[in-house]
Simulated scan of single mutants.
Amino acid sequence: MATKILLPIDHTDDRSWKKALLVALEQAKFYGAELHAVSVIPEIIQLPNLPANYGAGAKEHVRKAVQAILDGNGAAGTPVHIEQGSVYREILKLAHKDGFDLIVMASAKGDFPNYEIGPNLARVVRNAHCSVIVVRD
């Protein structure tokens, strides 16, 4: 039984959420669970020619994009977490730290040998402390 469900979303790729969001909403309704979304912004390497505040506002931009996706697809009011760093590490850290007991994550079309299991999904499935539902495209 799930009480807290985590849905990773990449706002730049609708395959990361179109089918997975529907499954996550169904699971949340079935179990009476809380649904949360997470989006991870890769860390920006500090280069000498970039200003110190380079990337400021990125978290708010991503939060608004993810919230618009949720609002427009029947998940208005869903809490959104914006993390920064390695995608799979941040998903795993948040899931463990905040006590999520289910992660719903979309697969992606890929090339051999990873037809539909990308590196982030593979690492989340392999290392998660909780159940992971893989929604195939």
Rank of each mutant, 00 (worst) to 15 (best):
L47R: 04
V23P: 06
G72E: 00
H36P: 13
Y54A: 15
G57A: 11
N73P: 13
G99C: 05
A95R: 01
A52W: 15
L21V: 07
A68E: 15
A37S: 12
V62I: 14
K29D: 09
Q46V: 12
K59S: 13
K64F: 11
F100A: 02
K97D: 15
I45E: 08
H81D: 10
E26A: 14
A28F: 06
R63L: 00
Y88T: 04
S107W: 08
V66M: 11
M105Q: 01
A58E: 15
D71H: 01
I69P: 00
H61S: 15
G77Q: 03
H36T: 15
I44K: 04
Q84N: 14
I82T: 08
S107P: 00
G72V: 01
Q27T: 10
G57P: 04
H96V: 06
A65G: 11
V104M: 04
E34T: 07
A56G: 11
L47N: 08
L94Y: 06
R89P: 01
S107R: 07
E90K: 13
G32D: 02
G55W: 11
I41Y: 01
P48E: 06
A106D: 08
D71S: 05
E83K: 10
I91R: 02
A24N: 03
A106Y: 01
E43V: 13
K97W: 08
L25T: 14
Q46S: 13
G57I: 07
A56F: 04
Q46L: 10
L22S: 11
G57L: 01
Q27D: 05
D98Q: 14
Y54W: 15
K29R: 10
D71V: 07
V104T: 03
